[in-house]
Design a protein around this nucleic acid. Structure first.
Length: 414
RNA sequence: GCGGGUGUAGCUCAGUUGGUUAGAGCGCCUGGUUGUGGUCCAGGAGGCCGUGGGUUCAAAUCCCAUCACUCGCCCCA
């Protein structure tokens, strides 16, 4: 094992892994493209404020997981831990509220300083979509449907189930928060340390605690659904009936919460049990308050993000490298002729392997290693006759073809 | 940040109660084949046994520390 290792929590994407990775991105782009979402990208780093203010000063991501640096000019910048804040910033920066609704798809690296685990890295990659400027429950439905379509395209639908909850509107949440804090305060001494801390700054998160004692206490907590305003309830009902109408099954989960203030109405996760502790494949929700909170015009939004590595581990497909055709020159004269011949075949769309050195045996061996479909042998005999020998490397059959008509003769091996 | 497991060849792994030149399979290289791959045969290269310290006549093996990976907690995608 070499001493020179990548930074903890980061991984190289060698071609085998990269093809798998690309497949997730391409399949997702295709799926959400049918809903009108277009590929875009924001910078990998942003001013620290973009994340610190929007993700909530108390969230784990902000308090202990961000990669934050000071620039030579003295500004604080942060490697993005997620992409929604960056998209929101972009909407404001570019004055995009003039073109609503916006439908964006993104894919790229995110950075969180967490303890690495299976399906959890410090540099990881997400795909995601954002629907900005739609203040109707139908927006939530479409976003969720697009997520389901991505899972379907990747062949992982069977591994995933959709969990759904509502966080209501601001009024509902404030009312519930008071009620919940009142209830939990009676058990403050019994709560876990984490949950006691959350009691002040993030009480909804306690509903999500995995601590056994916390769960017992939470089991009898007042239900959020009772605090919903009529408007919030109607919104949620509309989302549910929209999903029903297109046959997307979901499990209601009142424990599914988001700790961040700007989240409202729909919160959802496509989860799996196939990846150990890392259950979330795609997670998202509505964030109507976000853009306004960042200083932009009051603009609603809803979206989700999915972990590419997690999806790639479950995705079904064939990731082998595409098969080339090997061009095998024999002798000095043939080597000279091979280079322009290779270029001509490449220009015609063929994937041509032309080795840099080696005798026939060596070149044939590496052709086999590259899983080439065919080898094109060109030696003095062939050159003199203006021909090439084509060997089918699967069957071993050989035939001859005139050099001028090679692009046609190789068609079966394309 | 907290707990458990694991670190031996490029990869997957053996390695006895501590004992002499640390092994296998796969992969890689060379040859058997001067213009023909896959199969077969023969040969070869490649290891500071994760790193540092300790115990011992002697450490891949026992002890301590450290780093990395991994599983779980936490958090999330």
């Amino acid at each position: 094992m070499s001493k020179l290792q990548p930074i903890r929590g980061t991984h190289d994407l060698l071609p085998d892994a990269m093809r798998r990775h690309r497949h997730v991105v391409d399949a997702a782009e295709g799926a959400v493209g049918r809903y009108g979402y277009e590929f875009m990208a924001t910078p990998v780093f942003e001013a620290t404020d973009v994340f610190a203010r929007t993700l909530g000063e108390t969230s784990d991501v902000v308090t202990k997981e961000m990669y934050t640096f000071e620039t030579k000019g003295g500004d604080s910048i942060t490697l993005r831990p997620e992409n929604t804040a960056g998209v929101a910033r972009s909407v404001i920066s570019n004055g995009l509220q003039q073109n609503l609704p916006l439908k964006y798809f993104y894919a790229g690296p995110m950075f969180r300083h967490e303890r690495p685990q299976k399906g959890r890295q410090r540099q990881f990659h997400q795909i995601g979509i954002e629907l900005i400027g739609v203040a109707q429950p139908l927006g939530d439905v479409e976003v969720i449907a697009a997520g389901a379509a991505v899972l379907d395209a990747l062949g992982v639908k069977d591994h995933a189930k959709l969990e759904l909850n509502t966080l209501g509107d601001t009024e509902s949440r404030a009312a519930y928060r008071d009620e919940l804090v009142a209830y939990l305060s009676r058990f403050e001494a019994d709560l876990s340390e984490d949950s006691r801390r959350r009691l002040n700054n993030n009480p909804l998160r306690i509903l999500d605690s995995k601590n056994v004692r916390d769960r017992e206490i939470v089991a009898n907590a007042p239900a959020f659904s009772n605090s919903l305003t009529g408007e919030a309830r109607a919104w949620f009902d509309a989302v549910k009936s929209g999903l029903d109408a297109i046959g997307i099954a979901y499990d209601l989960n009142e424990r599914l919460v988001r700790g961040l203030d700007y989240y409202c109405h729909s919160a959802f996760e496509f989860t799996t049990t196939a990846l150990g502790a890392q259950g979330a494949l795609i997670a998202g929700g509505r964030y109507d308050g976000l853009i306004a909170q960042m200083g932009g015009p009051d603009t609603p939004g809803v979206g989700w993000a999915g972990g590419i590595e997690r999806l790639a581990m479950l995705a079904k497909g064939d990731w082998r490298a595409p098969r080339p055709i090997a061009l095998v020159p024999i002798g000095a004269a043939a080597e000279t002729a091979a280079l322009p011949l290779a270029e001509r075949l490449r220009a015609a769309g063929y994937r041509i392997d032309l080795g840099f050195s080696g005798n026939v045996k060596k070149r044939m061996k590496s052709a086999n290693h590259a899983r080439a479909r065919a080898a094109v042998l060109v030696g003095n005999d062939e050159l003199a006759a203006g021909k090439a020998t084509i060997r089918d490397l699967d069957s071993g059959d050989q035939s001859e073809a005139r050099l001028e008509s090679l692009t046609h003769a190789l068609a079966p091996f394309r």
